[in-house]
Simulated scan of single mutants.
Amino acid sequence: MRIKSVCIMGGTGFIGRQIANRLANTPVSIKVLTSRRERNRHLLPIPNLQLIEADVHDPQQLQHHLADVDAVINLVAILNEDNKPGRRFEDVHVQLVEKLLVACRDNGVRRLLHVSALGADPEGPSRYQRTKGEGEQLALAANGDDLAVTVFQPSVVFGPADSFLNTFASVLRIAPFMPLPTPDARFQPVYVDDVAAAIQTTFEDRSSFGQRYELGGPTVYTLEELVRYVATLLDKRRLIVGLPDGLSRLQGRILQHFPGKPYTYDNYLSTRVDNVCQHNGLPDLGIHPTALEAVAPGYLGSGNSRWRYDEWRREAGRDN
């Protein structure tokens, strides 16, 4: 299978930007759909990228924009939901996949790379996990002669501008103490470029068709270990108080009503399942998992301004 053009849905997000940069200056033409083009103009310097304002939840627009591509990478997801159309778990993780599969079939798209999440399971404890599981099952069920599908299940993803370690860093910089829910929850953080490399590696690889790959880093940590590590990188001495299960649930029920939903009861439910690979797919794809300790000090530790500048240049395509 030869792929000459790809549409990245969710291409303006954390993982999507990394994939777009990996495909920069390759023969593959890139189309990125976004609901707010002006806010994402930083992608425009990528020479083979077309940034298009579109509503991916509109079936007609989806049909139109997939008419001339060979492959689709679906990264669209939400961690928390609200009652607005297009912002509910079912809208994003299930119904959008259904619309996408119809548009792929109608337009003869031959390849779908669907990014789900580690712990996705239609029988999972949280709505996030259940809808993610339903979506990836729909995607894998569509694998066949006309559409080759591969699913990826990354653990929490780290790297510059991540929404995981940076969130804890923001709190630790200003708060004298942190009440930490589910401190014993286990994670296997995976580097954003390793995730992007896995997707790029399987692009045209027939052995990956119909497969599901769990993606994780080399080390498993508890949430408390990760937060304490971030505090160490920031050189901040903070009181970090691990909450028992009952208080963790209560914190989720309270904070989900705060602006921005910093923590929700559904987030709490997701931690009932360890976010750890049963079998890490990165080595199978020839990718050596990058250690958190090799990257995080560069963007969270002291003297990180140069790192951020270099990352900006790379994202802008100015390091070539």
Rank of each mutant, 00 (worst) to 15 (best):
T26M: 13
L250R: 12
F209P: 09
Q153M: 01
V6G: 13
V102N: 05
P47N: 03
A161F: 12
Q188F: 10
D82G: 10
A291Y: 02
A20R: 08
A185D: 15
T202R: 11
T232S: 05
I46N: 08
A71N: 07
D145H: 06
Y263A: 03
V97F: 15
R39D: 08
L172S: 10
R39W: 07
P27E: 05
Y229R: 01
V28I: 12
R17K: 10
D146E: 13
L233G: 14
S155M: 03
F168H: 03
A142N: 00
S248T: 09
A148Y: 03
Q50R: 04
A198L: 01
L75C: 06
E38Y: 09
T290A: 02
Q211I: 12
M1L: 08
R87N: 13
R186E: 08
P283V: 04
E214I: 07
S29P: 04
K4H: 14
Y299N: 02
R173W: 12
K31V: 10
R253T: 11
T150E: 05
R87V: 08
V109S: 02
L247Y: 13
R173K: 14
R17S: 05
E81N: 05
L140D: 00
L215Y: 11
L49Y: 01
P259R: 14
E225P: 10
E53C: 06
V273K: 11
N74C: 09
L223G: 09
L226K: 08
V171K: 11
K31Y: 05
V94S: 09
P176M: 08
L233T: 14
R308L: 14
P283R: 01
S35R: 12
G242Q: 11
R253M: 13
L239K: 00
P183E: 11
L147E: 09
P259T: 15
A103H: 11
L43Q: 02
Q63N: 07
V69F: 08
N166L: 07
Q153D: 04
R88E: 10
V72K: 00
D274E: 10
P47H: 03
D82L: 09
K132I: 07
P259D: 15
I287N: 01
F14C: 00
S208K: 12
R2L: 07
V195N: 03
K31F: 06
P218F: 06
P262S: 15
K99H: 15
I174Q: 13
K99N: 13
D121E: 06
P283H: 09
P183C: 07
G133P: 07
Y221H: 14
G16S: 02
G281K: 15
N280E: 01
I52H: 01
H257Q: 06
S170I: 13
L100A: 01
R306C: 12
T182Q: 14
D106V: 12
V230E: 07
P189Q: 10
G246K: 15
H114G: 05
Q18L: 11
R228V: 09
D121F: 07
Q50D: 09
G242W: 10
R127A: 08
R313K: 13
S35I: 10
P154A: 04
S270M: 12
L112Q: 01
D68L: 06
G246V: 15
R17E: 01
S163T: 14
G133L: 00
H65C: 11
D319I: 02
D91H: 13
D184K: 15
P189D: 13
S170N: 12
G108H: 09
G124N: 06
D58R: 14
A294D: 12
